[in-house]
């Protein structure tokens, strides 16, 4: 077994990057969905996909990335980058759906406020973003928790390769398969501690920020 710290760090890096990536497109997407009624049906689509099984995402991505698959030439299969892409896709519906609600409320309050004070559309959007930021961060953290705790994608497109694509969850699965329950439980506790720690940190930041 690799040292647990390395695995934890690798997991955090992979899931963290996936989360940032997902946030990068999910939040603008949520803004788009919230600002125009025309896209409203898409919202239901994303809400419905929030609970998509991780294994399904992993499998679909595997079929795409496999050497014989349409994206096989990228040679991404069994790399950390493949996990990053997979997890980013996995949490996109979650971040989009939650941010959408936040931004929708934010728009009705803060966009109008900004306009009454003579803001341009861009300034208004900035104010909405600033005021909803704590809630947006919460939605991103929810995404991160799902990413760091998921197994299907990491196992199928990562391959659980020692020293390369082994993450906390795939380690837990392996340790369980090997009957090393102590190691599995230890990793599981670390994983839980991280999830709890992150959400506590966000809670603190939000309070410090003085948002409701």
């Amino acid at each position: 077994m690799e040292p647990i710290q390395i695995i934890v760090l690798r997991s955090l890096t992979i899931s963290g990057t996936a989360t940032l990536l997902a946030a990068l497109w999910s939040i603008p997407l949520a803004y788009l969905l919230a600002s125009s009624r025309r896209f409203r049906p898409l919202v239901y689509f994303f809400e419905a996909l929030v609970g998509i099984p991780t294994v399904l995402v992993g499998l679909l991505l595997y079929l795409l990335l496999s050497r014989n698959g349409p994206l096989g030439f990228l040679e991404l299969l069994y790399t950390p980058q493949a996990i990053i892409v997979g997890e980013a896709l996995l949490i996109t519906p979650l971040i989009t759906a939650v941010s959408y609600q936040t931004i929708l409320t934010g728009l009705s309050y803060y966009r109008e406020l900004a306009l009454t004070l003579g803001a341009s559309d861009k300034q208004a959007a900035l104010l909405v973003f600033r005021e909803t930021l704590p809630s947006l961060i919460s939605s991103v953290v929810m995404g991160f928790s799902r990413a760091v705790g998921e197994l299907g994608v990491a196992l199928i497109v990562g391959g659980n390769i020692k020293g390369y694509t082994r993450t906390m969850t795939t380690s837990i699965a392996l340790a369980t398969a090997m009957g090393e329950y102590e190691a599995a439980v230890k990793l599981g506790l670390v994983l839980t501690a991280i999830a709890v720690g992150v959400s506590l940190a966000v809670r603190l930041v939000r309070r410090e920020w003085g948002s409701e």
Partner: peptide
């Protein structure tokens, strides 16, 4: 050189190898 093992069932291992992965 690094040897990277991907562990799955035998059937799946063969299938994935056959598809060039």
């Amino acid at each position: 050189v690094s040897i990277q093992f991907v562990a799955v069932g035998s059937g799946e291992a063969l299938r994935r190898a056959a598809s060039g992965d």
